[in-house]
Design a protein around this nucleic acid. Structure first.
Length: 811
DNA sequence: CCATGCTGCTTACCT
DNA sequence: ACAGGTAAGCAGCATGGC
C-alpha cells in the first residue's frame, strides 16, 4: 500500500453511497496538491440515568420529515464530567445530520441524564479524534481513487500524524482585490453594479484585469472584453497559480461574495474549488466565504479578532493596518470618483488600476507577515486556517479545551440553555484593584508587573471548574479563597489549571530559546500562546462558555486583588512610596533608593510567591505625572504619563491617546506633557499654550486639526441620546451615503449657539473661518491641559491668559 | 430667563 | 459574543436665583 506524507489545509465531508466521508485537502511533502478521503462515523455522548438505556438506544432508528436516521452503535466508556467519573455512552449514528435529530429525541427520555458534544462539527470531531493538526505533517496509507476531482484523491486505509511535527512551509498565497462600479451616495448593489477591475498579487503574478481600454504603458494592466471575461480570467489565474491560500481584506463580506454574485449573474462557471465547486457563502452573524481545498485568509478578520489585543490601532482600514504592520504607505486616489471616471474619462483610469493593485499587494504583504501567527494558532488549536482566522477569544479557548479534554478523559459540559444563560448574566463579577494616585509630578519611578497575573493564578492555585469545593471542605490541602467563600482541591491537577499551566510553561520555553536567537516563527508562537493564556480568565467568566465557572473567575480576581495589595504593603514597608497600581502593576517612587535596590525588590516578593507566579521589574522612569480627576474627587485612575530614559513618552488614558479628541487638543496635550516631564518647565508650556490659543482665535489652524472622530456603535435609529456624531451620521444618511455601525464619523464644531450637535458639520463642508474657536479652546484644549497645569498651581484663568486681570480683581 | 448641577447615555480607554 | 474598572463629553432635565 503506497504511503503519502502530506500537509492538510482544508477539510470537508460528503456523503458517498449513504456513508459520511471526510475529505482532507492539502499538499504532499514534494508539493503535489492531493485530497485524502477517509471514512468516519459521527457520534456524541449520552450520560445514562439507568444502564438499561443502552439497549433502547442501540435499536433507535426512524424517520423525521422524510429523512431517516439511525443509531449504529452504542459503546460504554468511563469518562469524567467536571472531574466526576461517569459511565458514558458513545452513541454513533449513521450520518452527521442524525446527530442533532437523535440528540433532541433522547434528551427527553427519563433514563438519559444529559447529552454531550452533539454540537461538535463533524469535521472537527474527526481532526480531534485522529489527532490531525492542519498544516502539520500527516502520514496516509491508501490508493488513488477514481473520483471526479481537480486533484488526485487518495482513499485512505490508515491515517496518522507524522512522528516529527513538521510544519508546512512555502505556502502559495494569492491576494485578490476588486473595484466595483459604485455611483456616489448609493449603497453596494451586487446585482446591478459590475466589477470594473480585479487585482491579483502572488509570488509569480501581479496584475490588474479591467474591461475598459485606455492608453497605458503599465505591463501590470491586462485588458479584457467585458466583465464576464474578467471573471473568466480570474478563474484561469486561480487554476494556474494553484494557491494554498486566497487572501483579501474584508474579502469574506465583500470581494468574494461580489465575485460570486457577478459570476452567477453573468453565467460564468467559477469552478475553482478542488471538487469543481465555486465560492460558497456561510451566512451567519456575518458572511464567511469558502472555496473547497483552498484556505481563505481574510486579513481583517484576523487583525480585529484573534490579534485585536496585540495590534494597537484605532482604525481597521487596510491603510491603517498596513502602515501599522508594514510601515509607511500612501494612497492618493479618490475612489468615490471611479464610477464617474469610468463612464466619462476612461483615459484617467490608470491611477485606479495602480490603486487596485497596490491594495492587492498590501493585502499580500499583510497575509505574508501574519501567516506565522496564524500558522502557530492553527498548530495550537488544531483547526484549519479557515477557522482559526475567524475565531473569537472564547472560541479559541473552547476549541483548545475540546482538543485537550481527551488527555483528561473529560467530556465537555453542555452549552448553557437560554434559561441558564439568563441566570449567568444576572450575576456580576468583581474585578481588579486600582490604586488611586495622588496628583503630582514625580521623579525616579520604578514600574513592576506580575507576569501573566491571571493565568499564573489559575495554574498556581489549581483553579478549575473541576476542583471547586465548598469553602468549609475537610479535604486535605484544599486551598481556600476566603474572599469568595470557596476552596480548590489540590489532590489532583484540575483540567483547566493543567491546560493553562502547560500553555504558560510552553511559552516560557519558547521565550528562553528566543533569548538565544531570533526566530519569527517562535516569536509568533510566543505571541499566540500569550493570547491564549490571557483568554482563559475571561472565558471562565463568559456566560456562554461550556466550562463557565463564576466561582473560578471570581476567585482569580479576588486572588489578583490579594496579591497586588500585599505587594503594595511590602513596597511601603521596604521604604518605597506607592504612586499607582492597576490590576497587576505597581508604580513606585524610589525615595532616594538606588536602581539596584529597586530591581532587587522583586526578589523579596518572588521568594514568597507560589508556583508560576512572578513579579517582574518593568523599568525605570526619570519622571511621571498623575493628575486629578475632572470632578476633583481625587487622583484620576488610568490616566498618567511617564518619561522613559531614552526620552520617549508613555501616555495612558489621556486625550492625547483617544480617538474622539481633535488633533489640535492631542498635539497641545502631548507637547505640554513633554515639556513638563522633561524639564518641569511649566512656564514654557504655558507660553506655548497661549500661542496655540491665539492661533485658534485667529483661525490660523487648518480645519483638519479640528476634526473629531467618533465611532458609530449601533444603527442610527437605536440611539436614545443623539450626540454630534449621531447627528452627522443622520445627515450623511440623508444624502444617501451608506452609514453602518462601526463607521468612524468625522465632524467639526462650527460657530453658533445652542447644542453642539446642531453645530457639528462634515469637515469637507467646513471652511477654516467657520470652526468655533471658543468650542475648541474651552471644550477641547483647556480640558486636555487643565489638570496637568493644576499640578503646578496654574488656574484655568491663567491658561486662558486672563491670570493678570483676575489677580487685579482679587486685590 | 439663565446659570448651575445632576443623571443617563455614550465612547474610549486601561489592565 | 473573553472579563471588569474608569474617565469624561453631551443632552436633557430639575433647581434656584434674578
Amino acid at each position: 500500500m503506497p504511503t503519502f506524507h502530506f500537509y492538510p489545509i482544508d477539510i470537508t465531508y460528503r456523503i458517498v453511497s449513504g456513508k459520511p466521508v471526510i475529505y482532507l485537502y492539502g499538499r504532499t511533502k514534494d508539493g503535489q496538491r492531493i485530497a485524502v478521503a477517509d471514512r468516519f462515523d459521527p457520534y456524541f455522548w449520552a450520560i445514562p440515568q439507568k444502564k438499561s438505556v443502552k439497549e433502547r438506544l442501540e435499536n433507535l432508528s426512524g424517520e423525521k420529515d422524510g429523512e431517516s436516521y439511525s443509531v449504529t452503535s452504542v459503546e460504554e466508556k468511563k469518562k469524567r464530567l467536571l472531574g466526576k467519573e461517569v459511565e458514558a455512552l458513545k452513541v454513533t449514528v449513521s450520518q452527521p445530520k442524525d446527530v442533532p435529530l437523535v440528540r433532541e429525541l433522547i434528551r427527553e427520555w427519563d433514563d438519559i441524564q444529559s447529552v454531550h458534544e452533539a454540537d461538535i462539527l463533524f469535521t472537527r470531531r474527526y481532526l480531534i479524534d485522529k489527532k490531525i493538526i492542519p498544516m502539520t505533517l500527516v502520514v496516509v496509507e491508501g490508493e488513488e481513487g477514481r473520483e471526479e476531482s481537480r486533484i488526485p484523491v487518495i482513499a485512505a486505509t490508515a491515517i496518522r500524524p507524522a512522528e516529527d511535527e513538521e510544519t508546512m512551509k512555502g505556502l502559495g498565497i494569492l491576494a485578490v482585490d476588486i473595484e466595483t462600479y459604485y455611483p456616489k451616495g448609493k449603497g453596494i448593489d451586487m446585482d446591478n453594479n459590475p466589477i470594473l477591475m480585479l487585482a491579483v498579487h502572488g509570488e509569480t503574478i501581479s496584475r490588474v484585469i479591467t474591461w475598459k481600454r485606455f492608453a497605458t504603458k503599465r505591463r501590470s494592466i491586462e485588458f479584457v472584453q467585458d466583465e464576464a471575461a474578467l471573471l473568466h480570467r480570474f478563474r484561469e489565474i486561480v487554476l494556474e497559480e494553484q494557491p494554498d491560500i486566497i487572501t483579501g481584506y474584508f474579502s469574506d463580506g465583500f470581494d468574494l461574495p461580489y465575485i460570486k454574485r457577478r459570476a452567477e449573474k453573468l453565467k460564468v462557471n467559477l469552478d475553482i474549488g478542488a471538487d469543481f465547486s465555486g465560492i460558497s457563502l456561510k451566512k451567519g452573524m456575518d458572511t464567511e466565504s469558502k472555496i473547497t481545498g483552498i484556505a481563505h485568509f481574510d486579513v481583517i478578520k484576523f487583525v480585529r479578532g484573534g490579534l485585536r489585543t496585540s495590534i494597537a490601532t484605532d482604525s481597521y482600514s487596510l491603510n491603517a493596518v498596513a502602515s501599522k504592520l508594514l510601515g509607511e504607505t500612501k494612497h492618493e486616489v479618490e475612489l468615490d470618483d471611479l464610477a464617474e471616471v469610468w463612464d466619462k474619462r476612461p483615459e484617467k483610469l490608470e491611477p485606479y488600476c495602480d490603486y487596485n493593485l497596490q491594495d492587492a499587494l498590501l493585502t499580500y504583504q499583510l497575509a505574508e507577515k501574519l501567516l506565522p501567527n496564524l500558522t502557530e494558532l492553527v498548530k495550537l488549536i488544531g483547526l484549519p486556517l479557515q477557522d482559526c482566522n475567524r475565531m473569537s477569544f472564547s472560541q479559541l479557548v473552547e476549541s483548545f479545551l475540546l482538543r485537550k479534554e481527551g488527555e483528561f478523559d473529560e467530556i465537555a459540559p453542555e452549552k448553557p440553555t437560554e434559561h441558564e444563560l439568563a441566570k449567568r448574566r444576572k450575576v456580576r463579577l468583581q474585578g481588579a484593584f486600582v490604586h488611586e494616585p495622588t496628583p503630582g509630578l514625580y521623579h525616579d519611578l520604578a514600574v513592576y508587573d506580575f507576569r501573566s497575573l491571571y493565568p499564573s493564578i489559575i495554574a498556581s492555585h489549581n483553579i478549575s471548574p473541576d476542583t471547586v469545593r465548598e469553602a468549609d471542605t475537610l479535604e486535605e490541602g484544599a486551598f481556600v479563597v476566603r474572599e469568595e467563600k470557596v476552596a480548590y482541591s489540590t489532590a489532583k491537577k484540575g483540567f483547566i489549571a493543567a491546560v493553562v499551566e502547560e500553555v504558560i510553561t510552553r511559552r516560557m520555553r519558547v521565550k528562553d530559546i528566543l533569548k538565544k536567537k531570533k526566530d519569527p516563527f517562535l516569536e509568533a508562537r510566543a505571541m499566540m500562546l500569550k493570547i491564549l493564556a490571557n483568554s482563559f480568565y475571561g472565558y471562565l467568566g463568559f456566560p456562554s462558555a461550556r466550562w463557565y465557572s463564576f466561582a473560578c473567575a471570581a476567585s482569580v480576581t479576588a486572588l489578583g486583588r490579594r496579591y497586588i495589595t500585599e505587594t503594595i504593603e511590602k513596597a511601603e514597608k521596604a521604604g518605597f512610596k506607592v504612586l499607582y497600581s492597576d490590576t497587576d502593576s505597581i508604580f513606585l517612587s524610589l525615595q532616594g533608593k538606588s536602581k539596584a535596590a529597586a530591581k532587587k525588590f522583586v526578589d523579596d516578593i518572588n521568594e514568597h510567591l507560589p508556583g508560576l507566579m512572578e513579579l517582574e521589574y518593568e523599568g525605570f522612569y526619570p519622571s511621571g505625572i498623575f493628575v486629578s480627576a475632572k470632578d476633583n474627587k481625587g487622583g484620576a485612575k488610568k490616566r498618567y504619563a511617564l518619561l522613559r530614559e531614552d526620552g520617549s513618552l508613555v501616555i495612558k488614558g489621556f486625550e492625547a491617546v483617544r480617538r474622539n479628541t481633535s488633533v489640535i487638543a492631542k498635539e497641545v496635550q502631548e507637547h505640554v506633557l513633554k515639556a513638563i516631564l522633561e524639564k518641569a518647565d511649566d512656564k514654557k508650556a504655558l507660553n506655548y499654550l497661549h500661542g496655540v490659543i491665539k492661533g485658534i482665535r485667529e483661525k490660523k489652524l487648518a480645519v483638519e486639526k479640528m476634526v473629531i472622530r467618533t465611532r458609530l456603535t449601533k444603527p442610527i435609529s437605536s440611539y436614545d441620546a443623539i450626540g454630534p456624531h449621531v447627528a452627522i451620521a443622520k445627515q450623511m444618511k440623508g444624502k444617501g451615503i451608506d452609514i453602518a455601525p462601526g463607521a468612524i464619523i468625522r465632524y467639526v464644531v462650527t460657530t453658533g449657539g445652542g447644542r453642539i450637535r446642531d453645530r457639528a458639520k462634515l469637515p469637507e463642508a467646513t471652511k477654516q473661518s467657520e470652526y468655533d474657536a471658543d468650542y475648541y479652546i474651552n471644550n477641547q484644549i483647556i480640558p486636555a491641559v487643565e489638570k496637568i497645569f493644576e499640578v503646578f498651581g496654574h488656574t484655568k484663568e491663567e491658561l486662558l491668559g486672563k491670570g493678570a486681570q483676575m489677580r487685579l480683581l482679587e486685590f
